[in-house]
């Protein structure tokens, strides 16, 4: 017993001193990745963190913690002590947990260390689809109601937001919405002809488009991307999209809210520098992500604007369980 007691005491002492930024990191840092191995969040985090480790002079042990659309990982990190030794490596969707009834916590319980990058949505169709661009698709849907099959990834996923955006602007779409687990399986189904149209992230679709296995209908951004110049921007078809775009999923590193400011600063510094590493930038560019690399107040305001826009879009499309108003999320000002 004596040994255990000694161990406990020394742990306490170490934990108390560990909170001081001067010798942070005094022990291993846990990085909890919200999504499974091999996904975009996983790839991004596993490729930026080694650079950050070098700058920090510590070790970040990364673990995938999946389940509950990422809510499990978020709650786990929120429950750990706010000492900067547990990082949450996540994507955009926690900002929708409250309105979708998936959890009671979101990024307002965290401090952003770095919002690394964002993705651009793109509408792609199977090569056999009887239309070649966004305008053609809209016309075809009007002529053939209830026939076109759209891929979906559950309420709150990127396809649901993009579809909500289209319905807000163009009026209701009479299409069949076929649910998949994620955009990977849905894009596979698109190539096999099980669905006709899929709203996806540019990075996930770009190789398939290059090979001619799927065709781009419209890029959901205010301008064309230089990665894929043949895809027209959706604003060229309907200028009303300018109100909602640019919009896209993002990746970020977060720590619990009451983490000492100097620790956050040290982490933010490390990740900000890591995110400028040329290898990492090139990787992100290749996958069609737009680098953001923002922290502090800038990141906070980005997050709250994103949450306002998206939750109200979903609310107006009737996809939410609880109104954003209940959580004090104000309707975005026009």
């Amino acid at each position: 017993m004596k040994r255990f007691a000694l161990g406990a005491v020394s742990a306490l002492v170490l934990a108390a001193t560990g909170a001081l930024a001067a010798d942070y990191p005094a022990k291993e840092i846990q990085g909890i990745i919200q999504w499974g191995a091999g996904g975009s969040t996983d790839t991004v985090m596993r490729s930026v963190t080694p650079h950050a480790e070098e700058i920090l002079g510590g070790t970040v042990v990364m673990q995938n913690m999946t389940g509950g659309v990422g809510a499990i990982a978020l709650n786990y990190v929120a429950d750990q002590s706010a000492d900067g030794y547990t990082l949450l490596m996540g994507a955009e969707n926690p900002l929708l947990y409250k309105v979708m009834g998936l959890g009671k916590k979101d990024y307002s319980d965290f401090v952003p260390v770095n919002v690394l990058a964002r993705g651009t949505p793109i509408l792609v169709a199977s090569p056999n689809a009887p239309f070649d661009d966004y305008a053609g698709m809209m016309a075809y849907i009007k002529e053939h109601p209830g026939e076109v099959r759209f891929g979906a990834t559950g309420p709150g996923g990127l396809p649901s937001v993009v579809t909500a955006m289209i319905e807000t602007i163009e009026g209701d779409l009479d299409v069949i919405s076929v649910p998949y687990d994620g955009d990977g399986p849905a894009l596979t189904a698109l190539q096999g002809g099980a669905i006709d149209v899929m709203p996806a992230v540019l990075g996930a679709a770009i190789e398939g488009i290059r090979a001619g296995n799927m065709k781009p209908l419209a890029l959901f951004d205010v301008a064309k991307s230089d990665k894929l110049p043949e895809a027209p921007a959706v604003t060229d078809f309907n200028a009303a999209y300018n109100d909602y775009l640019p919009w896209g999923p993002f990746f970020g590193v977060f720590v619990a809210k009451d983490t000492p400011a100097d620790v956050v600063e040290k982490l933010a510094g490390a990740y900000a520098e890591a995110a400028t590493n040329p290898e990492f930038v090139e990787l992100m560019n290749n996958r069609g992500f737009t680098m953001m690399n923002i922290a502090g107040a800038e990141a906070e305001s980005f997050l709250s604007t994103w949450q306002q826009n998206t939750t109200w879009l979903l609310q107006d499309a009737g996809l939410t369980k609880t109104s954003p108003e209940e959580f004090g999320i104000a309707r975005p000002g026009k």
């Binding site: 091999g38 996983d42 596993r46 770009i206 190789e207 398939g208 090979a211 001619g212 290898e279 290749n286």
Partner: peptide, 20 residues
């Protein structure tokens, strides 16, 4: 699942796994 991670690894190493 394993090939899914390998695809991620190929990306990290600068290749673009896909039909091309």
């Amino acid at each position: 699942a394993v090939t899914a991670i390998m695809i991620g690894a190929l990306y990290i190493h600068g290749l673009n796994p896909g039909p091309m």
